[in-house]
Amino acid sequence: MVVIVPNKMLYALDKYIPVYGRDRVLVARSIDGKVWERSVSPAINVGHDCKFDMAYWPFVWREGSLWKMVFSGSPNLRQPKRVFSLYTSTSADLINWTEPEDLLVDDGYYMCPRVYHRAGEAQLLWSSGDNCKEVRTSCLSEAMVPGELVTIKSKTGLVDCVDFNICGDILAGVTSSEAGNFIFARERVANDWDVFAETAVKMAGYDFINNPSLVQLGSEWLLFYRASKRTAWGSELWCIKSGDLETWSEPELALDYSGWKRKSLDGKSYSVFERVANYELGGVGYPTVIEAEGILYAFYGGYWGLHLLMPYTYWFWR
């Protein structure tokens, strides 16, 4: 006999027992991009009392003496229609962040939010449309939809790229046609970007390569990205390096995930059934890596906390 539990009842139970997934924005820091120190607490936490159960695509930039973050949040299974809204948060130290505030909150689908400064004015870019097939933009101070259409062009024509990040005046993206095909573009005129370099990353056994984040450390460029052998579940953060954005090094693992067991900063191994280990249970992704005073800070999503629907989500992502 199959028992179907109403979603409303599951949501009520979720206040006491974690029924739904809990995908948070996490933060780690490094001096070389290889060895990372994770923060004990999430940058953006989620839960029953939050507006969202899942937080993805964090983007961080400096505004005066403070740091700002914009990210996508989804209420997951609470609603019959899956939505992604945009929220902002503020920090003085890149570790502790304020309670998120609404930016674009409705029944829309807003993913991959990024901030680009044009002539001193902050522009908000995001992926939108049916199944996020286009990039839109508007002034950050007056964020509104539908916004203006953004085009990305190469020598052969328009580029289909809705998974991207911003580093200074450079847009780093991955084309929708092939995993691991990264492009680099600059804005020629308002909302028109031209590709000036590209590279293809091939990793044996990995067929899920996306979520790029470009950062400059000294004279070297580092491109971080998500890679997995089976869609989002079990994904890791990898890195390639370049001095000119043309020739790149071989991929190196940058940040793995806790998996079924995680060794914490105190050196002790915690089992998956202990609460301390639940932030990266199924993988990591959606990175934005920035440099501040010679230190790299990685803001990224951690998949699936301890919840009753975990067997279903594991099956769903396989």
Score class of each variant (00 low, 15 high):
31 I>F: 11
62 R>I: 05
137 T>V: 09
223 L>V: 13
56 Y>F: 12
239 C>V: 15
278 N>T: 09
289 V>R: 13
136 R>D: 01
311 P>K: 02
192 D>E: 15
203 M>F: 06
123 Q>Y: 07
213 S>G: 13
1 M>W: 06
163 D>L: 08
65 S>E: 10
234 G>N: 10
172 A>V: 11
137 T>I: 04
202 K>H: 13
218 G>K: 08
90 T>R: 12
69 M>H: 09
135 V>E: 03
302 G>S: 08
303 Y>H: 12
149 L>V: 07
318 R>Y: 08
98 T>M: 08
7 N>P: 01
202 K>L: 07
68 K>C: 07
81 K>H: 02
103 L>I: 02
34 K>G: 04
209 I>W: 09
206 Y>E: 15
85 S>V: 04
290 I>V: 15
43 A>W: 01
207 D>G: 15
53 D>T: 04
32 D>R: 03
295 I>P: 02
125 L>I: 03
241 K>Y: 00
292 A>I: 02
7 N>M: 05
176 S>T: 06
38 R>W: 06
34 K>W: 05
231 T>S: 12
166 I>T: 06
301 G>T: 06
50 C>S: 05
124 L>N: 12
92 A>L: 07
298 A>R: 03
93 D>F: 13
70 V>H: 03
27 V>S: 07
59 F>I: 04
194 D>R: 10
205 G>E: 14
219 S>V: 11
155 K>L: 13
28 A>V: 00
42 P>N: 03
311 P>H: 05
2 V>K: 12
276 V>W: 08
127 S>W: 06
236 E>H: 10
83 V>K: 04
157 G>N: 13
171 L>R: 03
100 P>W: 01
222 L>R: 15
107 D>Y: 14
18 P>I: 04
298 A>C: 13
226 R>E: 14
80 P>F: 00
59 F>K: 06
94 L>M: 15
190 A>L: 05
101 E>Y: 00
193 W>N: 08
259 G>A: 06
308 L>A: 14
184 F>I: 11
210 N>H: 12
46 V>D: 01
161 C>Q: 10
12 A>I: 08
100 P>N: 04
71 F>D: 07
170 I>S: 02
188 R>W: 01
195 V>S: 04
61 W>E: 10
40 V>M: 02
8 K>A: 14
22 R>P: 02
50 C>P: 00
78 R>K: 10
64 G>P: 08
55 A>E: 02
142 E>Y: 00
91 S>W: 13
122 A>F: 05
267 G>R: 14
77 L>S: 07
11 Y>C: 03
70 V>C: 11
279 Y>H: 11
80 P>H: 00
267 G>N: 15
231 T>Y: 08
